[in-house]
């Protein structure tokens, strides 16, 4: 292996199947299901009022970057994305309509008619916020939208899993307002009282647009990974700038309305987010596997090895360090060989 392997991007621009599980929310479900036949993720981005040209441009750029990444890097079908913005004329081919409260309500109602029962919805707010007490609102052209407004409109999605990411300032009130089953709420701030402009949105978008957030190297970005990446970058930003942080992001996905600042895949908050992805896995390998028993066997072996590694990690505290390390290495060597064989089967991407 030469050093050149390090020089390029780690993230594959062509979505491959590092894991066969992971169609939308069904990371733990059986794989080998083409996207068209399974659940989909619908994305609705709302970029609010900038107030000043600098912020209008920033919010527009963030929204555009996110949608580009969703399409180009993560394979999300553009027909599943909707963008509501302060000024539709800045990107008329991309922006559905002016991002008013009414437009948002209307778009959600429309989406409710399209979404299948197992589909997932990601609602991303970018902009300035405000609020008093526990109520947070996002500044939109015309009347602002509150967490309670959104909660009411989301009643139209009785079975779907819904992620709401409010990257605006003073967004913390959304956690309590939008709590519920199959709900994942991320806010840039922990209360409606953190009113300074936030940087969380920038880094949240970066998580999908740049390298670095895929910490488990499964070539996908879960919302948990995106949250942790953005949170860490926000902390680093303030530390390097020598400032006291004025934003503290929260994630709540266990329905208790209490956000966590340190969520993890093992909960109490973070489990749902760890399984929420922008896009389904590619159908390519699934299709190949369907006609290739040898590849199917390799994929099956890979899945089994992954499960064994996960189980071994769970037993780590019960083993000596040496035994654990040896067992882990054996499994990983097997996985390495198997992965290489799968790649050989796939051929050049």
């Amino acid at each position: 292996m030469g050093f050149s392997a390090l020089a390029g991007s780690r993230v594959r621009w062509t979505i491959r199947t590092a894991t066969l599980v992971g169609v939308g929310l069904l990371a733990s479900a059986p794989a080998l299901v083409a996207q068209s036949a399974g659940p989909r993720t619908h994305v609705l981005v709302v970029s609010g009022l900038g107030g000043e040209p600098e912020y209008s441009e920033l919010f527009r750029t963030q929204a555009m970057t996110f949608l580009d990444a969703a399409r180009d890097r993560w394979g999300l079908d553009e027909t599943e994305t909707v963008w509501l913005a302060e000024d539709p004329t800045v990107a008329p081919d991309r922006i559905a309509e002016k991002g008013t409260r009414e437009a948002l309500q209307s778009q959600l109602a429309s989406l409710a008619t399209r979404a299948k029962p197992d589909d997932a919805i990601l609602l991303l707010f970018i902009g300035h916020g405000g609020g008093t007490g526990d109520e947070s609102k996002v500044n939109l052209p015309g009347p602002d939208v509150t967490g309670a407004d959104v909660a009411g409109w989301l009643d139209a999605f009785p079975t779907q899993t819904i992620a709401i990411v409010n990257a605006a300032s003073a967004s913390g009130g959304f956690v309590g307002a939008l709590k519920g089953d199959r709900r994942l709420v991320i806010t840039a701030t922990r209360t409606a009282g953190e009113r300074w402009r936030t940087h969380f949105g920038t880094f949240f978008v970066d998580a999908f647009a740049l390298d670095g957030a895929d910490t488990d190297k499964d070539e996908r970005i879960s919302l948990l990974e995106a949250f942790l990446y953005a949170k860490a970058e926000v902390e680093r930003y303030y530390a390097l700038d020598g400032q006291i942080p004025t934003e503290h992001a929260l994630l709540d996905d266990n329905g208790d309305g209490e956000g966590s600042m340190e969520p993890s895949a093992t909960g109490p908050d973070g489990a749902l987010a760890s399984r929420f992805f922008l896009a389904a896995a590619s159908a390519t390998v699934a299709a190949q596997a369907a006609g290739d028993p040898e590849l199917a066997a390799l994929l099956e072996k890979k899945t089994r090895l992954e499960q064994e590694i996960a189980a071994l990690r769970g037993r780590r505290d019960q083993m000596t360090a040496d035994r654990y390390e040896a067992a882990l290495e054996n499994l990983l060597l097997d996985l390495a060989v198997t992965s290489r064989a799968i790649r050989d089967k796939e051929g050049p991407q």
């Binding site: 292996m1 390090l6 488990d216 190297k217 070539e219 060597l333 390495a336 060989v337």
Partner: peptide
């Protein structure tokens, strides 16, 4: 942390002097 990290898997094979063909 990331069992499917391809470059790392390849490096492990290289460290152990294995080619991947000896499965």
């Amino acid at each position: 942390i990331a069992p499917n990290y391809e470059e790392a898997l390849d490096l492990l094979l290289e460290i152990r002097g294995r080619t991947g063909d000896d499965r």
